Simulated assay, not measured.
Amino acid sequence: MTGPHTDPAPGTGPAPGPDGAVPPGGEPGDGPVFSVRGLWKVFGPKAARVPGDPELAALGPDALRERTGCTAAVRDVSFDVRPGECFVVMGLSGSGKSTLVRCLTRLIEPTAGSLHMDGEDVLGMDRARLRELRRHRAAMVFQHFGLLPHRTVLDNIAYGLQIQGLPRAERRTRAAAMAAKVGLAGLEDRYPSQLSGGQQQRVGLARALAVDPEVLLFDEPFSALDPLIRRDMQEEVIRLRREEGRTMVFITHDLSEALRVGDRIALMRDGGIVQLGTPEEIVARPADDYVADFVRDVPREQVVTVRAAMRPATAEESAAGAALSPDTLVIDAIEAVTRTGGPVRVMDGARCLGVVDHAGLLAVVAGLAPGLAPGGTPDGSAGAAVAR
């Protein structure tokens, strides 16, 4: 199913939002880093027949397996990854998220569809070009760190550079810089067995960063870590993205992690994307009952911004007084309104977009904000973007 706010066609760049702003992760005219259209990965006998047969393609997982012996791990998926954004693919175990990300660099060969990176046809790449993509343009960070136990931290970080053929002195210099960037300074001569789980994951992150890839692909990288260490690593990813503007594709089954690190989230079920949107869109406007159940326990005030709670300002209200930016979270706006004792302006530069007050903010918390009924957008149209 395709919603009203789908990703742009390949090469057209991110579309402006309802207020004319370009979504996070791109500038007007930037093309997508990855552009995926109608992608399938089917496992089983004569897998290629499934995407091409509308009757088979429409079958659910159990019916398809019973009739053909095939499993559609990824089914008819379309999306763009914009430059500089953290694009999160999330879902429960077996939803197809890890298979999908492996298809992006053809670690798993797609069955059907189209896949482009920076406008180049990934499915048409020969072995040499594909090897270049994996070594230089896209680096993966896995849940299981895959460190070489007989190599020091520094040599583990430098491993990808060694594969690229860089001289030893140069790769060790770059590896040392990456160690410092991810908080491993002073640990360069230790071995993996001498590190904590969080430190080992930092080595894996530094190793991926050392090759200076265009995009980082994270496959549930922190799921094996303790909660406090996991939060530290999430902060590290957020910091790196903020400081470097690096494009990231992040796989997780954890909703709180997805909401924390993601600019946009693709929520998968049975191989397909059931909703694609910003964290705010998914929490405030779930596309169906499945998504609504997924986000039911999320504190809305910690995700939704004041845009959802605004009402038009009177001439007197818009003239002066306290002000908030449009991206202020509702939880912070509640504090501001309480402090001022009245409506607070929402300002975009010198322009007053509206005001928020106690009634509007509390309605958002309760899920009753005007125009934010489940499945609806502020203008009353259908729900947030749902990829095919």
Rank of each mutant, 00 (worst) to 15 (best):
C70Y: 04
T252H: 01
P28C: 07
S35N: 02
T71E: 04
V141Q: 04
V355Q: 00
P23D: 01
M310L: 11
A176G: 12
F142H: 08
V182S: 01
L225V: 10
D348H: 14
H144D: 14
L267N: 08
F87N: 05
K41Y: 08
V77M: 10
G31I: 07
E257G: 04
L259A: 05
A58T: 09
F34N: 11
F43P: 08
V344Y: 03
A208R: 05
T338F: 10
V101G: 07
V81I: 06
E132I: 06
R339Q: 14
V237T: 09
T252F: 02
D327C: 06
D379G: 11
R37T: 14
L104M: 09
D357V: 14
P51E: 08
A323D: 10
V74I: 09
F34T: 07
A158R: 01
Q302D: 15
V42D: 00
T314F: 10
A206P: 01
R172A: 14
F34D: 06
L368R: 15
T338I: 12
A309Q: 06
P54E: 09
G277P: 00
V89I: 15
Q275G: 05
Y290W: 10
L148E: 10
L225K: 13
R75Y: 09
D80L: 03
G186C: 09
G197T: 03
V306Y: 01
T278Q: 01
I238W: 08
D155R: 14
G380Q: 01
L324I: 07
G113K: 01
A309C: 15
R106H: 07
I251R: 00
A128L: 11
P61Y: 10
D19A: 09
G26H: 03
E85G: 11
C86S: 15
V291C: 04
R339P: 05
R67L: 13
G186K: 08
R171P: 01
V330F: 06
L217G: 03
L59R: 13
L64S: 04
I331F: 10
I282G: 02
C352D: 06
R285S: 08
S256H: 11
R37H: 13
F218Q: 05
H144W: 10
V22Q: 06
L195M: 03
L187D: 11
C103A: 13
E281C: 02
A320T: 14
D53V: 03
L195R: 01
A177W: 07
A158C: 09
V295H: 06
K97G: 02
I157K: 00
E85P: 12
A363Q: 06
T6R: 13
A287W: 01
D348S: 11
R168Q: 13
V298L: 07
V36Q: 02
G349Y: 05
Y290H: 15
R269A: 13
A224V: 11
A180H: 15
T305P: 00
R49P: 12
F145M: 12
L259Q: 04
G113R: 05
D118L: 11
T71S: 11
A73W: 08
T314W: 04
